[in-house]
Amino acid sequence: MNLLSILLVFLGMLILYFGIHLVINRGKIKFDYLVIAILYSFAIGVPVAYYSGSPDKFMPVFYVIYYTVFLLPFFGYEFYKCFRGRQTWGPFLLIFIGIILILLSPVLEHPVKFISILSGLALISGYFFHLFRYPHLNAMWLADMAKKAAENIEKDCRYSPKPVIVTTPSKKTSCTSAIGLYLLFKKNRSIVRMSKDFHQKLGRPNMEEYAKELVKRIKKKTEDEGKTL
């Protein structure tokens, strides 16, 4: 596999990335998330494409170590969200099995290899569909909503590192986060935690009002689309 092939993989992933996020994030793409996602996609996609194209150069030890280092934080975080937020394990299993199936492709022979890649992509698409159904689980959408929620809130207020409790019940428990923001929806209340930098970035809004507004907007969005949260 030459440099051109690697660049093609990279380009393909970029197109896929934009395509997916334009749908999943409802057209909202934020620069900081974009940089992280492109670098991450590049780091994940290129080795598997390279070894799938050149199985004779496959180095199992390097391959396993490389993907453990790169994928462990992602899976760890997804696992944490399921565990802490008591979410359903379905989406986690979809993305986990999907990625493992694609990662297995360099060691598989030709007919099975394509089935494995296609099945992996189908499962990953299922995960993206779940993100589309529940947009608050998507960090990029959440970051955009968090910024909008702060618009009409009283500014220049004090900060506290303790989470804010919003007494809005949820039908489904879930856990989500964006850079500097963490949300936990429990049955009887919602917990909103924000970092000092994030609070500063939003113009130091009144924490209580802001948390209420953010939870209200997320609930409204999911209710408008006929989903329970």
Binding site: C157, S160, K162, I165, N206, M207, E208
Partner: peptide, 11 residues
Amino acid sequence: FLWLVPPPDSK
């Protein structure tokens, strides 16, 4: 008890 105390500048 402290967990349930509202944040600064709240009502």
